[in-house]
Amino acid sequence: ELKKVVALYDYMPMNANDLQLRKGDEYFILEESNLPWWRARDKNGQEGYIPSNYVTEAE
């Protein structure tokens, strides 16, 4: 089971490997080892790295 998180803030990608975050949207965490960058997937199936301090665990 993948960990689900909710974006606390918008995040615009800095490079091609990053994933855009939209405040309030849910994302699945694929990999937590790259702290403070986590690999995530959005609801459309896009994958990339996000800043872990921009998300919180979903209820």
Rank of each mutant, 00 (worst) to 15 (best):
V55S: 01
L21Y: 00
G48S: 00
T56G: 15
Y54Q: 05
T56L: 07
K43V: 13
Y11D: 01
Q46T: 09
E26K: 12
E59W: 07
W37K: 14
V6W: 08
V5L: 03
E47S: 09
A40Q: 01
G48D: 01
E26G: 04
G48V: 00
I50A: 02
E57W: 09
I29L: 12
W37L: 12
M14W: 06
Y11T: 04
L8W: 03
P51E: 02
F28I: 11
V55H: 00
Q46G: 10
G48A: 01
P13E: 03
P13D: 02
A7C: 04
Q20E: 13
R22I: 11
G48E: 00
E1P: 03
E59T: 12
G45V: 02
Y9A: 15
Q46R: 12
V6F: 08
Y27P: 02
T56V: 14
D18N: 13
V55I: 09
N17C: 12
K3Y: 04
E32W: 07
L21I: 06
S52R: 12
M12K: 15
M14R: 15
G48Q: 01
E26H: 05
G48C: 01
E32R: 10
Y9W: 09
L2P: 05
Y54E: 02
G48K: 01
N44I: 15
G24N: 07
F28A: 09
M14L: 11
K4L: 07
G48F: 01
D18K: 09
T56Y: 04
Y11W: 14
A16L: 07
W38L: 13
L35G: 12
N53P: 03
R41C: 11
F28S: 11
D42W: 01
V6I: 11
Q20K: 08
L30H: 05
E1M: 11
W38T: 12
Y9D: 13
L2T: 05
E47D: 12
K23S: 07
K4Y: 03
Q20D: 05
E26W: 10
T56D: 14
D18M: 10
Y49S: 10
V5W: 05
E32D: 06
R22K: 15
Y54W: 08
Y9N: 15
E1A: 04
T56E: 14
S52V: 11
N44Y: 07
R22S: 13
E31P: 05
Y27S: 01
E32A: 14
M14A: 15
E32H: 06
E32I: 04
Q46W: 05
Q46M: 09
Q46H: 15
P51Q: 06
T56I: 04
K43R: 10
D42C: 06
W37P: 04
G24K: 03
K23P: 02
L19I: 06
D25T: 08
L8S: 06
W38D: 05
E59K: 13
D42T: 08
L8H: 03
E59I: 12
P51D: 04
A16C: 09
K3S: 05
G24E: 03
Y54H: 12
G48R: 01
L30Y: 09
Q20T: 10
Y49C: 11
E57C: 09
P13S: 07
R22A: 10
N34Y: 06
M14I: 09
Y49T: 11
A40H: 02
G48Y: 00
P51R: 08
N15C: 12
S52C: 10
W37V: 14
Q46V: 15
T56F: 05
W38I: 14
D42K: 02
L21W: 00
S52D: 03
E47Y: 03
F28W: 15
G45Q: 05
A58G: 12
M12W: 08
L30A: 06
M14Q: 15
P36V: 08
E31A: 12
S52E: 08
N17L: 11
L19G: 00
V6T: 12
N44D: 12
N53T: 09
E59Q: 12
F28N: 08
L35A: 07
L8N: 06
N44M: 09
P51V: 02
E32K: 05
Y49I: 13
Y11A: 03
E47F: 03
A40Y: 01
W37E: 14
G48H: 00
Y11L: 07
K23A: 11
A16G: 12
Y27T: 01
S33P: 13
F28G: 09
N34V: 15
N34E: 15
N15V: 15
N53Y: 04
G45T: 02
F28V: 12
E1C: 03
N53A: 13
N17M: 12
E1L: 08
I29F: 01
E59G: 15
Y49E: 07
S33D: 07
Y49L: 13
V5I: 04
V5Y: 06
A58P: 13
Y27R: 01
A7N: 00
I50Y: 01
D25C: 15
G24L: 02
W38V: 14
V6S: 04
E32N: 09
N17I: 04
Y49A: 10
L2C: 04
E32Q: 14
G24R: 02
S33M: 11
Y9F: 14
D18I: 10
D42Q: 02
E47R: 03
S52Q: 10
A16Y: 05
R39M: 06
T56H: 14
N44E: 12
Y11F: 13
D25N: 08
W38K: 12
Q20N: 05
M14H: 15
Q46D: 08
L35H: 13
I50K: 00
Q46E: 13
T56P: 01
P36C: 08
E32P: 13
D18C: 14
S52A: 12
L21P: 01
Y54I: 04
P51M: 06
A40F: 00
E31S: 15
N34T: 14
A40W: 00
V55P: 00
F28Q: 08
K4I: 10
E57P: 11
R41P: 00
K43N: 12
E26M: 13
L8V: 09
L19R: 01
E31I: 06
N44R: 08
N34G: 15
R41D: 00
V5S: 02
N15S: 15
Y49F: 10
L21T: 02
S33I: 08
A7D: 00
T56R: 14
R39V: 08
Y11P: 01
N53H: 06
F28C: 07
W37S: 12
A16S: 10
A7R: 00
L21C: 03
L19Q: 01
D10N: 07
D25K: 08
N53L: 07
G24H: 04
I50W: 00
V5A: 05
V55F: 03
E32V: 14
E57I: 05
G48N: 00
M14V: 14
P51T: 02
E57N: 15
R41F: 05
K23N: 05
N44T: 14
N44P: 02
K23C: 10
G24C: 02
G48P: 02
D42S: 08
A7G: 02
I50P: 00
I50N: 00
D25S: 08
E57K: 10
G45F: 04
K3W: 03
L35C: 07
L19D: 00
A16T: 10
P36Y: 05
Y27E: 02
E32C: 08
F28D: 11
L19C: 02
N17A: 10
R41V: 05
S52H: 05
E47G: 02
P36D: 12
E32L: 05
G24Q: 03
E59C: 09
V6Q: 11
A7F: 02
D42Y: 00
W37T: 15
K23G: 05
L21G: 00
S52L: 05
A40R: 01
P51Y: 10
V55L: 03
Q46I: 15
K3T: 06
E1W: 07
E57S: 12
P51I: 02
Y9C: 13
D42H: 03
K23R: 09
R41H: 04
L21R: 00
Y11Q: 03
E31T: 10
E47A: 07
K43A: 14
N34W: 10
E59N: 12
N17E: 11
K43D: 07
A7W: 00
D10F: 01
W38S: 15
R39T: 06
R39E: 04
E47W: 06
Y27V: 11
N34H: 08
E47M: 05
Y11I: 03
Y9Q: 15
P13R: 05
P13Y: 01
G48W: 00
A58K: 13
A58V: 13
L30N: 03
E57F: 11
